[in-house]
Each structure stands twice: as structure tokens, then as C-alpha cells.
Design a binder for these strands. Structure first.
Length: 163
DNA sequence: GCCAACGTTGGC
DNA sequence: GCCAACGTTGGC
């Protein structure tokens, strides 16, 4: 899906009750490792396609309201998700072998928090965004690609809300 | 809290 | 390899 040169764009979901964009902004070096993803498609994106410098929309799911909260960037490429090896971790996976890890993650760094969160409802109104993976019926992929056109359209929407 | 849609598991 | 049962996601 992303076998081209240049920057790629992504969207990553997090429940703000668990980890919000404010948490990311306050984290040491404004950076966190994106652990806990236990879905193969999302894993593949992090393992194979996300590159340093790629840009990420930080999406708040299960929130009031849900929507895009801001922007982050990839600062470390795919490496083993060590939370899978820790029996005390909620994301522990007994089937993941540390010598041949099943689950991978990346590190992302805070870039910007939108002044106003861009709610899902607004995104749905935009014809430029109708093909976004996020907006497809039944879509629940937690790490997903965003096209350059969609990226620009979202930024434009975010800016228009500043007034 | 409800529930539709999805991904995974496991019996056969 | 099918598919029912189950667990999870995530909007509302």
C-alpha cells in the first residue's frame, strides 16, 4: 500500500481516558511507544510501512465527542512491542515469543494539538474525506493509512475551526 | 449501557 | 476449510 518514496500519512486511534493527546504532549520528549496493538493489519502497517518523518493524526475514540485531536510524527520505526512479553501487562500475549515477536510498535512524537477537536460528525460532512478508512462503515482499524489529499483536507478543516 | 460489525478461535 | 461462538471495538 505504501511502496513509494516520500512521506506517508496515518491515523492512530486512542481512547483519551487511557491515553490522550494531552498525555502525549506531556510525555518525556513528547514521545511514546504505541504499544498494545493486537490486530494484524494494524501491526503490518507499523512493522512494514511507517517510516521516520511520516505524519499521524491522533484520533480520540470512545470519547465525547470522538474525533481528530491533533498531529504527531513517527520518530522510531517498527520494533517489538515488549508489553506482549509481560504477564502483568493488560496487553500480555502468551503466544508472542520474544525471540520471534508477534507484535510490533512504533514511537510517535507530539507535533500539534488542534485548538478545537475535529469531531467525527464534521469529518463525515466533508466530501473530500468520504473515502477515509476511518469513515467506512464498520471500520475499526486502529492504525490506518490516510492519503495526502485527505491529510490536506483534514488540516484545512481544522484551520477553518480556529475562527 | 446497548449493540452492530468485526476479528479470532476452535470443533468438526 | 467451514462456520458458530465468542470477545472486542467504538459510535451512539
Amino acid at each position: 500500500m505504501t511502496a513509494k518514496t516520500g512521506k506517508n500519512y496515518w491515523l492512530m486511534k486512542s481512547e483519551p481516558d487511557v491515553f490522550s493527546i494531552e498525555d502525549l504532549a506531556k510525555a518525556p520528549k513528547k514521545t511514546t511507544h504505541w504499544d498494545g496493538v493486537r490486530n494484524y493489519q494494524a501491526r503490518n502497517f507499523m512493522r512494514d510501512s511507517m517510516k521516520i518523518g511520516d505524519m499521524v493524526f491522533f484520533y480520540h475514540s470512545n470519547a465525547d465527542p470522538s474525533g481528530i485531536a491533533g498531529v504527531a510524527e513517527v520518530v522510531k520505526e517498527g520494533y517489538p512491542d515488549f508489553s506482549a512479553f509481560d504477564p502483568k501487562d493488560v496487553h500480555f500475549d502468551e503466544k508472542s515469543d520474544s525471540k520471534n515477536p508477534t507484535w510490533m510498535m512504533v514511537d510517535i512524537k507530539h507535533v500539534e494539538t488542534f485548538k478545537n477537536l475535529l469531531p467525527l460528525e464534521e469529518l463525515r460532512k466533508s466530501s473530500a474525506l468520504k473515502d477515509m478508512v476511518l469513515l467506512q462503515k464498520g471500520s475499526r482499524l486502529s492504525v490506518q493509512p490516510v492519503t495526502a489529499e485527505q491529510w490536506q483536507a483534514v488540516l484545512k478543516l481544522a484551520k477553518s475551526k480556529l475562527a
